[in-house]
Computed example of a mutant assay.
Amino acid sequence: MSAVLLSIKNHVATLSNNDAPYNRMTLEYMDELERLVPELGADNSVRALVFTSAGEDHFSVGMNLKQIPEGIERKGSLEAVLDQRLRVLDLIENLGKPSIATLFGYCLGGGLELPLACHFRLAADEGAQIGLPEMDLGTVPAWGGSGRLPRVAGRDVALDMILRGRKISGEEALKFGLVMETCPVTEIKARAQALGEELAKQPRLAVKGVLDTIVGFEAKSLRQSILDERAAVLLTGNTADSQEGMLAFLEKREPVFNKDD
Protein backbone atom coordinates (compact mmCIF):
# COMPACT_ATOMS: atom_id res chain seq x y z
CA MET A 1 0.00 0.00 0.00
CA SER A 2 1.42 3.34 -1.05
CA ALA A 3 2.00 5.81 1.76
CA VAL A 4 0.99 8.69 -0.51
CA LEU A 5 -1.88 8.69 -2.99
CA LEU A 6 -1.14 11.04 -5.88
CA SER A 7 -3.76 12.36 -8.25
CA ILE A 8 -3.50 15.17 -10.81
CA LYS A 9 -6.56 17.01 -12.09
CA ASN A 10 -6.74 20.30 -13.98
CA HIS A 11 -3.05 21.01 -13.28
CA VAL A 12 -3.48 20.48 -9.51
CA ALA A 13 -1.54 17.63 -7.85
CA THR A 14 -3.16 16.22 -4.72
CA LEU A 15 -0.95 14.26 -2.33
CA SER A 16 -2.95 12.31 0.25
CA ASN A 17 -1.45 10.68 3.33
CA ASN A 18 -2.77 7.13 3.05
CA ASP A 19 -2.79 6.03 6.70
CA ALA A 20 -6.39 6.62 7.76
CA PRO A 21 -7.85 7.32 10.21
CA TYR A 22 -4.94 9.03 12.00
CA ASN A 23 -2.72 9.57 8.95
CA ARG A 24 0.56 9.38 10.81
CA MET A 25 3.55 10.89 9.04
CA THR A 26 5.48 7.66 8.72
CA LEU A 27 8.98 7.05 7.43
CA GLU A 28 7.42 5.80 4.20
CA TYR A 29 5.27 8.93 3.89
CA MET A 30 8.28 11.23 4.17
CA ASP A 31 10.31 9.12 1.73
CA GLU A 32 7.48 9.38 -0.80
CA LEU A 33 7.15 13.14 -0.34
CA GLU A 34 10.89 13.59 -0.76
CA ARG A 35 10.64 11.76 -4.07
CA LEU A 36 7.37 13.22 -5.35
CA VAL A 37 7.63 16.91 -4.48
CA PRO A 38 10.73 17.60 -6.65
CA GLU A 39 9.19 15.59 -9.51
CA LEU A 40 6.04 17.68 -9.35
CA GLY A 41 8.13 20.82 -9.11
CA ALA A 42 9.87 19.91 -12.37
CA ASP A 43 6.59 19.16 -14.17
CA ASN A 44 5.38 22.38 -15.81
CA SER A 45 1.89 20.93 -16.27
CA VAL A 46 1.50 20.84 -12.47
CA ARG A 47 0.87 24.36 -11.22
CA ALA A 48 -0.41 23.86 -7.67
CA LEU A 49 -0.20 21.21 -4.95
CA VAL A 50 -2.74 20.13 -2.34
CA PHE A 51 -1.65 18.28 0.79
CA THR A 52 -4.47 16.34 2.39
CA SER A 53 -5.15 12.93 3.92
CA ALA A 54 -7.34 9.91 3.40
CA GLY A 55 -10.78 9.96 4.99
CA GLU A 56 -12.44 12.80 6.86
CA ASP A 57 -11.37 11.95 10.43
CA HIS A 58 -7.93 13.51 10.84
CA PHE A 59 -5.37 15.33 8.73
CA SER A 60 -2.50 13.92 10.80
CA VAL A 61 -1.44 13.20 14.34
CA GLY A 62 2.14 13.79 13.24
CA MET A 63 5.16 11.53 13.35
CA ASN A 64 4.70 7.83 14.10
CA LEU A 65 6.74 7.77 17.30
CA LYS A 66 6.86 3.96 17.30
CA GLN A 67 8.99 4.16 14.15
CA ILE A 68 11.78 6.20 15.74
CA PRO A 69 14.05 3.17 16.43
CA GLU A 70 13.50 1.93 12.86
CA GLY A 71 14.16 5.41 11.52
CA ILE A 72 17.44 5.68 13.43
CA GLU A 73 18.48 2.29 12.07
CA ARG A 74 17.56 3.20 8.49
CA LYS A 75 18.83 6.79 8.44
CA GLY A 76 21.76 6.41 10.83
CA SER A 77 20.63 8.78 13.60
CA LEU A 78 17.62 10.60 15.00
CA GLU A 79 19.15 13.80 13.66
CA ALA A 80 19.09 12.33 10.13
CA VAL A 81 15.42 11.38 10.53
CA LEU A 82 14.52 14.91 11.56
CA ASP A 83 16.76 16.47 8.91
CA GLN A 84 14.82 14.66 6.19
CA ARG A 85 11.56 16.11 7.50
CA LEU A 86 13.03 19.61 7.52
CA ARG A 87 14.27 19.07 3.94
CA VAL A 88 10.84 17.99 2.74
CA LEU A 89 9.10 20.98 4.32
CA ASP A 90 11.71 23.30 2.83
CA LEU A 91 11.09 21.72 -0.58
CA ILE A 92 7.37 22.40 -0.28
CA GLU A 93 7.83 25.98 0.90
CA ASN A 94 10.40 26.89 -1.76
CA LEU A 95 9.11 24.87 -4.71
CA GLY A 96 8.00 27.96 -6.61
CA LYS A 97 4.48 26.54 -6.91
CA PRO A 98 1.61 27.36 -4.54
CA SER A 99 0.72 24.69 -2.01
CA ILE A 100 -2.51 24.23 -0.05
CA ALA A 101 -3.07 22.21 3.12
CA THR A 102 -6.36 20.98 4.55
CA LEU A 103 -6.65 20.98 8.34
CA PHE A 104 -9.35 18.77 9.83
CA GLY A 105 -9.63 16.55 12.90
CA TYR A 106 -6.27 16.18 14.62
CA CYS A 107 -3.56 18.40 13.11
CA LEU A 108 -0.82 17.85 15.65
CA GLY A 109 2.97 18.11 15.67
CA GLY A 110 4.09 17.41 12.13
CA GLY A 111 0.41 17.52 11.23
CA LEU A 112 0.62 21.29 11.76
CA GLU A 113 4.26 21.80 10.79
CA LEU A 114 3.75 20.54 7.25
CA PRO A 115 0.77 22.87 6.68
CA LEU A 116 2.85 25.74 8.07
CA ALA A 117 5.27 25.17 5.17
CA CYS A 118 2.38 25.50 2.70
CA HIS A 119 1.31 28.84 1.26
CA PHE A 120 -2.43 28.43 1.88
CA ARG A 121 -4.23 26.64 4.69
CA LEU A 122 -7.92 25.75 4.95
CA ALA A 123 -9.52 24.43 8.14
CA ALA A 124 -12.70 22.56 8.95
CA ASP A 125 -15.15 24.85 10.72
CA GLU A 126 -15.91 22.13 13.26
CA GLY A 127 -13.88 19.32 14.81
CA ALA A 128 -10.37 20.54 14.03
CA GLN A 129 -7.81 20.30 16.84
CA ILE A 130 -4.70 22.15 15.74
CA GLY A 131 -1.57 22.28 17.84
CA LEU A 132 2.05 21.56 18.65
CA PRO A 133 1.80 19.34 21.77
CA GLU A 134 5.47 18.36 22.00
CA MET A 135 5.75 19.99 25.41
CA ASP A 136 3.51 17.21 26.76
CA LEU A 137 6.24 14.77 25.68
CA GLY A 138 8.94 16.77 27.42
CA THR A 139 10.38 18.16 24.20
CA VAL A 140 9.88 20.88 21.58
CA PRO A 141 8.65 21.08 17.97
CA ALA A 142 11.25 19.52 15.68
CA TRP A 143 10.14 20.30 12.13
CA GLY A 144 10.33 24.08 12.18
CA GLY A 145 7.07 24.65 14.05
CA SER A 146 8.50 27.08 16.59
CA GLY A 147 10.10 29.02 13.72
CA ARG A 148 7.15 29.17 11.33
CA LEU A 149 4.19 29.45 13.72
CA PRO A 150 5.12 32.90 15.14
CA ARG A 151 5.71 34.16 11.60
CA VAL A 152 2.21 33.08 10.62
CA ALA A 153 0.14 33.66 13.78
CA GLY A 154 2.33 35.97 15.85
CA ARG A 155 4.66 35.57 18.82
CA ASP A 156 2.04 35.50 21.56
CA VAL A 157 -0.16 32.92 19.85
CA ALA A 158 2.87 30.71 19.18
CA LEU A 159 4.05 30.90 22.79
CA ASP A 160 0.56 30.15 24.07
CA MET A 161 0.08 27.14 21.80
CA ILE A 162 3.54 25.65 22.29
CA LEU A 163 4.22 26.29 25.98
CA ARG A 164 0.73 25.24 27.06
CA GLY A 165 0.37 22.50 24.48
CA ARG A 166 -2.90 24.19 23.56
CA LYS A 167 -5.00 22.92 20.68
CA ILE A 168 -7.10 25.45 18.79
CA SER A 169 -10.17 25.08 16.62
CA GLY A 170 -10.54 25.98 12.97
CA GLU A 171 -12.39 29.17 13.92
CA GLU A 172 -9.60 30.18 16.31
CA ALA A 173 -7.03 29.41 13.62
CA LEU A 174 -8.92 31.74 11.27
CA LYS A 175 -8.98 34.49 13.90
CA PHE A 176 -5.22 34.13 14.48
CA GLY A 177 -4.42 34.23 10.76
CA LEU A 178 -3.22 30.63 10.78
CA VAL A 179 -5.68 29.66 8.03
CA MET A 180 -7.25 31.74 5.27
CA GLU A 181 -10.76 30.33 5.56
CA THR A 182 -12.89 27.62 7.13
CA CYS A 183 -15.53 25.35 5.62
CA PRO A 184 -17.37 22.12 6.48
CA VAL A 185 -15.06 19.11 6.60
CA THR A 186 -17.18 17.44 3.91
CA GLU A 187 -16.28 20.28 1.55
CA ILE A 188 -12.67 20.99 2.48
CA LYS A 189 -11.00 18.80 -0.14
CA ALA A 190 -13.22 20.15 -2.92
CA ARG A 191 -12.50 23.69 -1.74
CA ALA A 192 -8.76 22.99 -1.80
CA GLN A 193 -9.07 21.63 -5.34
CA ALA A 194 -11.02 24.69 -6.44
CA LEU A 195 -8.43 27.03 -4.92
CA GLY A 196 -5.68 25.02 -6.59
CA GLU A 197 -7.41 25.33 -9.96
CA GLU A 198 -7.83 29.08 -9.46
CA LEU A 199 -4.11 29.43 -8.74
CA ALA A 200 -3.23 27.14 -11.65
CA LYS A 201 -4.89 29.56 -14.06
CA GLN A 202 -2.47 32.31 -13.08
CA PRO A 203 0.68 32.83 -15.20
CA ARG A 204 3.15 30.20 -14.04
CA LEU A 205 6.34 32.28 -14.14
CA ALA A 206 4.65 35.24 -12.47
CA VAL A 207 3.40 32.99 -9.66
CA LYS A 208 6.92 31.68 -9.15
CA GLY A 209 8.26 35.23 -9.12
CA VAL A 210 5.83 36.29 -6.40
CA LEU A 211 6.60 33.22 -4.31
CA ASP A 212 10.35 33.79 -4.69
CA THR A 213 9.85 37.37 -3.49
CA ILE A 214 7.46 36.81 -0.57
CA VAL A 215 8.41 33.40 0.86
CA GLY A 216 10.98 33.97 3.57
CA PHE A 217 10.55 37.75 3.45
CA GLU A 218 10.91 37.88 7.25
CA ALA A 219 14.61 37.13 6.93
CA LYS A 220 15.18 39.61 4.10
CA SER A 221 15.79 43.32 4.09
CA LEU A 222 13.24 45.47 2.26
CA ARG A 223 15.91 46.17 -0.34
CA GLN A 224 16.43 42.45 -0.99
CA SER A 225 12.67 41.90 -1.38
CA ILE A 226 12.52 44.75 -3.89
CA LEU A 227 15.48 43.26 -5.79
CA ASP A 228 13.73 39.88 -5.84
CA GLU A 229 10.61 41.57 -7.17
CA ARG A 230 12.65 43.30 -9.88
CA ALA A 231 14.09 39.92 -10.93
CA ALA A 232 10.53 38.60 -11.23
CA VAL A 233 9.52 41.62 -13.32
CA LEU A 234 12.39 41.01 -15.73
CA LEU A 235 11.64 37.29 -15.86
CA THR A 236 8.01 37.87 -16.83
CA GLY A 237 8.33 41.09 -18.81
CA ASN A 238 8.12 39.73 -22.35
CA THR A 239 6.65 36.28 -22.01
CA ALA A 240 3.71 34.78 -23.88
CA ASP A 241 1.68 35.14 -20.69
CA SER A 242 2.46 38.85 -20.29
CA GLN A 243 1.53 39.42 -23.93
CA GLU A 244 -1.70 37.47 -23.44
CA GLY A 245 -2.51 39.48 -20.34
CA MET A 246 -2.08 42.79 -22.16
CA LEU A 247 -4.05 41.59 -25.19
CA ALA A 248 -6.88 40.30 -22.99
CA PHE A 249 -7.00 43.64 -21.18
CA LEU A 250 -7.27 45.54 -24.46
CA GLU A 251 -9.90 43.12 -25.78
CA LYS A 252 -11.83 43.27 -22.49
CA ARG A 253 -11.84 39.52 -21.92
CA GLU A 254 -10.44 37.06 -19.37
CA PRO A 255 -6.82 36.09 -20.09
CA VAL A 256 -5.90 32.48 -20.77
CA PHE A 257 -2.43 31.82 -19.41
CA ASN A 258 0.03 28.91 -19.61
CA LYS A 259 -0.92 27.98 -23.16
CA ASP A 260 2.53 26.48 -23.75
CA ASP A 261 2.32 23.97 -20.87
Rank of each mutant, 00 (worst) to 15 (best):
P38L: 09
G177P: 06
A200P: 04
L122G: 06
I168M: 08
P184A: 08
G209N: 08
N94S: 12
E79C: 09
D156A: 02
A219S: 08
A54V: 02
F120I: 10
V37N: 01
G177R: 09
E93H: 15
Q193R: 14
P38S: 13
R74G: 07
S7W: 10
L222N: 08
S16N: 07
E197R: 08
F51Y: 10
N94Y: 07
D160H: 07
W143Q: 04
T186D: 14
S77Y: 11
N258W: 04
Y106E: 07
H58L: 01
S45A: 15
V4W: 09
A153R: 02
T102P: 02
G71D: 11
I162F: 04
V207G: 05
R230V: 00
D125W: 02
N94Q: 12
L178E: 14
R223T: 01
S53Y: 06
K66L: 12
L159Y: 13
T186L: 06
L5S: 04
T14C: 08
D261F: 12
R164K: 13
E229Q: 05
V179K: 00
R204P: 02
L163I: 14
F249K: 15
E93K: 15
K201T: 14
R47W: 06
L178N: 09
L178G: 09
P203W: 10
A142M: 05
T102Y: 06
P38Y: 13
R204I: 10
A232V: 02
